[in-house]
Structures are given as structure tokens and as C-alpha cells.
Design a protein around this nucleic acid. Structure first.
Lengths: 190, 190
DNA sequence: TTTTTACGTCAACCATGTTGACTTACTTTC
DNA sequence: GAAAGTAAGTCAACATGGTTGACGTAAAAA
């Protein structure tokens, strides 16, 4: 039989569609973090360490306060994981050149290796999903995620639709102004 | 100038694209849970309570063990939040008819109201993102998320591309067999 | 009747978040 | 050059929500 609701009541469909998205986000995130969590547990680290390692790896020389803005946690909370990572030599701190109050954070070789192992798992999961879904779906995926992210962080991402069907070398089209001089943040590298 | 890397080294682009997706997932989930978290804090509840309320609301009469499978936490952990929710009369437990060992979970009116308030925030965020991105992007979004989710839970979702351009009344096309007789789980309602 | 299952409970522990108060070193401003 | 502001760290106390392990009760299944 025909599903009456979807024909007679578009509002139900909308509600249903949105709930589906909410749930998929829940399940996807749960499974997305599952792999790394297991690896981390084996070496006595947690998800919080992963996040720090990830964003330091992504933004070498990042300052503590920049990292705090990304993670949206308190410095006391960060301190716990960060000092552990420094003790265990996954991360080194070097005083800033221009401002010597800053402690610039960088991964050590050991840190880089761990980061690779952790991210490899997630990258593979995403890559599989991308492959199955196809290039257009990937573009849609990014567009929607982009819209879900709060405005201040949204501009970290260029989602303007890279080379899918007709690869075009986009020349010097500024997408987001650098808010933090001297430091490129999460994913905007041009 | 043209970005040399994306032209000369497609592997770099791929790596870059995957990392971008990883980060967007992080930011999106962080912001996606932010709204409800604030509301919950005001009434002395946490994200864990939200998840329970959500999935009970979605699956009225769900058993404890089914809920545990969805949440992937221990029963001791669930017990803490669940018994609180029962005490505060957001949820009622009724013995199963066929199997009287079971405690079937249902939202009270108070529970339904809270669920609405919490989910409204998330639904609005998703709806905005969907509106901005367009129908095709939404379909891509779902397809990719679907691929990210582990196989066992994947079949909770019908992602076959509903009515976007040409609405078709799909007639009795079985998408996933019921694994749990008598109980419809998260998003599969036909 | 025995065994298995669904659910609950007590206890201890851990990871990771919070607030609040205070310190140190360095930079900026007047 | 002194005062104010800022980057980072620290100590302490607490909350939330996960974990393991052991044990109990009632009902269903073998």
C-alpha cells in the first residue's frame, strides 16, 4: 500500500526526515570515534588527547589559546591532557618568537606517528563512505555539514565545490580572510 | 597563483579532503549538541539524559536491552540516568505483556514536552542547513552519513533517495527486515 | 527442575568536563 | 618606567557519565 502520510501530510515527512538526520548524526559520530577510542585506550589515552593531537598536528605552532577556542573547553581541562602529552613526549612546547609568553605547540615524531595511526582509521571510514556515495554526494555532505556548523567556525572551511565533474583551477579566489595572522587554522591551506 | 598541490598531487587533495571532512564532523557535532546541552543544564540533566529521552520518544515501549544496544553503554551507566528520569517522571516503565521480565519504556507527557523542546533546537539547525544546501545536497549528506555508520545500525535508515525531483509513491518496497519482532527501531516506520 | 535471560543494584574507579582563586612572566599602554 | 593587561600555568573541589566486577530477583525457556 501507498504510504498515505508522505502523500497527504508533507509536514510529517519533513519531521521524519529531520529526525532521521539527527539520528544518523548520532550513529555516525558514535562509530566515527569508536576506532580511535579503542587504540587510545590501549595506551592509556582518551578522546580528549586525540582531539589535542589532531589539532596540533593540523596547526603546527598553534598557541594554547587558539587551541582552547577550537576545543571550547577550559584551560584547566586542556591542561590535564596537554601536560600529559608533553610529559609523554607526544608534543613539545616552544616559546613564541614575537611574544615569548606564548607556548607554541608542535607534535614530536612520536606524536606524528600516533596521529597518523589514529586518523588513518577515521580517514579510511570516511573514504569508504565517500567512495560508496560518489562525488556529488560528497559535495552535498560537505554543504550540509557546513550549514550545521556555527558561523564563527564555518569559515574555516572552503566548501565551494572543488573539482568533481569539471575540474577548474580556481585562481586566487579569497574564501575567508585570515583572522589569526601567522597561523592557518583547520583546513584552510592555500 | 594556482594551488600547485591540487593540480600536481591528487593524493594530497584526497588527504586534504578527508581531513576536512573529519574536522567538519567534529565541529558540526560539537555545535549540534551545544543547544540541548544548555537547556538540559538548566534543569539539572545532561547529554546522557537527552539520548535516553530521545530514543525512548522515538521508540515507545522499547526495552532496556534494546536501548542499551543503541546507546552502546553498560546497563549500570544507563541505570543512573534512567532511574533519575523515572523518578522525575519523564519516563514510565511498564512490564512487558508477552515477557513480564521486560520493563517497557515510554515517555510521560512531561517527557514528551521536554523531548520536543530539546529536539526542536536540533531540528531547526538541521532544517536551516538543509534549506541552505538544497535537496540534492541533503540526499548526498544522508548517503555519506549512511556509509559512515557501522553495518549493524546502517539498516535502521532508508536512504534510497525519497521524493526530491520526481516524487514517487514507493509501494511496499521492503528496505530492511525487522530484526526485532514487535518493535520498530529508530527511523524505520512503514 | 534447572538453566538462562532481563533487569536491577552496590561499590569502586576513571576520564573529562566545570568553577574559582591565585601566580608568573611577558607585553602594552599611559 | 610604572601600571595595566594578557598568555599560560597551577591548585582545589566538584559533576557527569563512562567503566569493571560481583551479586540478586523474577520470569521464561529448556
Amino acid at each position: 500500500m501507498v504510504d498515505v502520510k508522505s502523500v497527504a501530510n508533507p509536514l510529517f515527512l519533513r519531521e521524519e526526515e529531520l529526525r532521521q538526520a539527527i539520528e544518523m548524526l548520532f550513529f555516525a559520530y558514535r562509530d566515527f570515534t569508536g576506532g580511535p577510542d579503542e587504540m587510545l585506550a590501549e595506551i592509556g589515552l582518551g578522546r580528549a588527547h586525540h582531539r589535542v593531537i589532531y589539532f596540533v598536528g593540523r596547526n603546527p605552532g598553534i598557541t594554547v589559546s587558539e587551541l582552547l577556542k577550537i576545543l571550547r573547553i577550559t584551560k584547566q581541562s586542556l591542561s590535564r591532557v596537554l601536560s600529559h602529552l608533553v610529559e609523554e613526549e607526544f608534543i613539545i612546547q616552544t616559546p613564541g618568537e614575537r611574544d615569548r609568553r606564548q607556548r607554541l605547540l608542535t607534535l614530536t615524531q612520536k606524536g606524528v606517528e600516533l596521529e597518523r595511526r589514529l586518523t588513518a582509521d577515521q580517514r579510511e571510514r570516511i573514504a569508504d563512505a565517500f567512495r560508496k556515495a560518489g562525488a556529488d554526494a560528497v559535495q552535498g555532505f560537505k554543504l550540509v555539514l557546513h550549514g550545521i556548523i556555527d558561523a564563527p567556525d564555518r569559515e574555516r572551511f572552503d566548501v565551494s565545490g572543488g573539482p568533481t565533474h569539471a575540474p577548474v583551477a580556481r585562481v586566487g579566489n579569497k574564501i575567508a580572510g585570515d583572522k589569526m595572522p601567522g597561523t592557518k587554522i583547520a583546513g584552510i591551506k592555500r
